[in-house]
Amino acid sequence: METNTRVKKSRWIKDRVFFGAVCVLSGFTAIPLVLIIWEVLRKGYRQLNWSFFTEEAPNSLEAMMAVNAGDLIPGGVANGLVGSLLMVLMAVVIAVPIGILAGIRLSEHPESKFSGMVRSVAELLQGTPSIVIGLIIYGWVVKPLGSYSGFAGGIALAMLMLPLIIRSTEETLKMLPGSLKEAGLALGASYSTVILRVLLPSAFGGLFTGILLAVSRVLGETAPLMLTALGASAIEWNVFEPMSALPLQIWEFYNDPNLAGLIWSTSLFLLLLILTLNLLAKRIARKWKI
């Protein structure tokens, strides 16, 4: 009797200790994120005003004078914002249709040799360092066109998005019940109609979430854009001209001591943008669950 309760007690203690350790350790994983947000917020919030979003990046001299006078650095990141939007838009336009088609192929013929090959290539592409993708696009697009351009940047981002979209499409379609496809076919619809009008709409939530996550992933890419879009100090709408992007601007501000004050606010903005996209993606995934 006595030993029995002692065993119970020691088990209870073990259980508590283990549970406590799990809680503490999982709490630790949240610390870096909280610290990052705190740090960026603390250093960057002051510059986040209207002109930050509407004006182009200031030149070094203007910034120096403002800082010396104790003012905020004038100007903003409008050129990077426009560039990021345009390039991500191009990447979406290129990568989404191709990625969804490839994902359909993979989920419809999961066992075929060709699908296996496509899957490995996509995995390989996902593992390729982004700077290497930048180099490749430099050779394929920048060189032949004779100029750095937002277009080249968009293609580089599309290459990075592609494997993510392929995978999310495949996974989403695989989760749909097979009876849905049968129901469509049994009504006499063609295979392509069933895919386009039954399966894809049913998978919309998952596909959209995948696209949002892919966008938030490439929004922060810097290295491939250095070799393709190069950067620009003014707002550029022509996609065949060099273009700036938010992460590229962080890099530029870092290289100019007078503009260093803008690093944090740009980082804060980029971080918030990506966090928002992620949260949005999660909400949509939950709402559209079948």
Binding site: P177, S179, L180, E182, A183, A186, G188, S190, S202
Partner: peptide
């Protein structure tokens, strides 16, 4: 496809189109 329009089918599990 023509056959399937003439021969309707109902499955084990109800499968209305969710969208």
């Amino acid at each position: 496809m023509e056959v399937r329009r003439k021969a309707g089918m109902v499955f084990q599990r109800p499968n209305p189109f969710p969208t």
